[in-house]
Design a protein around this nucleic acid. Sequence first.
DNA 1: CGGGAGATTGACTGATCTCAACCCGGGTGG
DNA 2: CCACCCGGGTTGAGATCAGTCAATCTCCCG
Lengths: 235, 235
Amino acid sequence: MMKNNIPSGNKTIDIDSSSIFRHLTPDELAQIPIDQEPEFYKRGTIIYSEGSRINGFYCVQKGIIKIYKTGFDGKEQIIRFAKRGDIMGFRSTVLKERACTTAQVLEDAYISFVHGDLVLNFIKQNGNFALELLQIACKELGEANDYITDIAQKTVRERLAEVIIHLKKEFSLDKDDYLQISLTREELANMVGTATESVIRLLSEFKQDGYIEIRGRRIKIINEKALIKVANINE
Amino acid sequence: MMKNNIPSGNKTIDIDSSSIFRHLTPDELAQIPIDQEPEFYKRGTIIYSEGSRINGFYCVQKGIIKIYKTGFDGKEQIIRFAKRGDIMGFRSTVLKERACTTAQVLEDAYISFVHGDLVLNFIKQNGNFALELLQIACKELGEANDYITDIAQKTVRERLAEVIIHLKKEFSLDKDDYLQISLTREELANMVGTATESVIRLLSEFKQDGYIEIRGRRIKIINEKALIKVANINE
DNA sequence: CGGGAGATTGACTGATCTCAACCCGGGTGG
DNA sequence: CCACCCGGGTTGAGATCAGTCAATCTCCCG
């Protein structure tokens, strides 16, 4: 069960799943300790939380992690999800700061950890590695900027529609056209930045209007065009 | 008038003002074309706008630039400001994408431009340069995440108080304790993510309560503690 | 002096939040 | 086996923050 990830050479870091490690030379790869098996994390586990020290990259091999910040009144704001191939904790590692988010397992996960010193060396030695990381950071930055504009300017209804579209892109659909991610109403609300009750009401509105179908936590997209229109996005 | 910036050696890129260039070797510095004088941009000028191609770093030597995104209905959302020492356009350069924000001069500025190919080479060759850039990106990312949480969870009143505190930190006060940046009510609203009228009403509330004084666009902070309390921040 | 941009104020509206009650299904302990 | 409990989901009613619209004002400029 540890072998869900494809070892590369005799390494346990899954190169295919973490594009950044593609750029490492064999020498550099060899510096990653052999014993660094990806670790199993059960649903609900908190991998790290706001304010904790983390010094290294968490590389998700499998599973889904939700990354959120806790607001003043304790309400969580979901910033993003991490899944196979994504890295967590690089902001704190690069800045040598404490975590400013909490990472919690949504779907059972395998995650490997690469120590910060090692990563910082790679960054300094290997330009392509550095560039790739920079690209990841910049991509997130662009997404964050979009998010800011949306939350500041769009209605809850628009944002919820947008979140659904976004989830489809990120997690795609299963054979029955249901989103491949299971979120509570509260978690949806914490993405949209609204109250749970508002999400519930709007979801049933979307259902009424024939845009989606709902089976428990599973959401099926019936009329994507309409959702896109509601969300006011141009794609 | 071109000489407001301090040349380093016979270079016109002001090393002191742009920390990232500290890390360049003399050889690398020499690759930056001599004729690359910082250019003057008058208040109101748009340096680049959403969707335009930019391939390179704009390094602000002097002045203040507002960087914003335009929302669906044309309303602008101010993402950040750039001032002496800040870099603009690195997201687009690194990702080789078009700009996703607009940059407009708020206070007359001198800005030098370093071509993207050059920068990308520096990133690949010079680990410290790459790391510094990565740190800048990560810092912005952390700020963006805070911003998201605030906009999603706080009231307009809280956010406005927070913006004022934030402006004080970023631009500090002049001799009379006034913020060293001049923004229209609309621009304040576009930072907070609210309507102009709401900003006006809240500002006069803050004035009533003795937290601030207002002289035209100039804002003086009288009771910072109270503002911090209103903003619900812990510092 | 006319015009335009930005600032202000008041009145009104309505999207969303909050609070509270209630439902439902699964798991647990007696 | 059943009563109970608990987390999550739903629904309704009422309260309210904040957005919109419109009128007015104040500068400043040509």
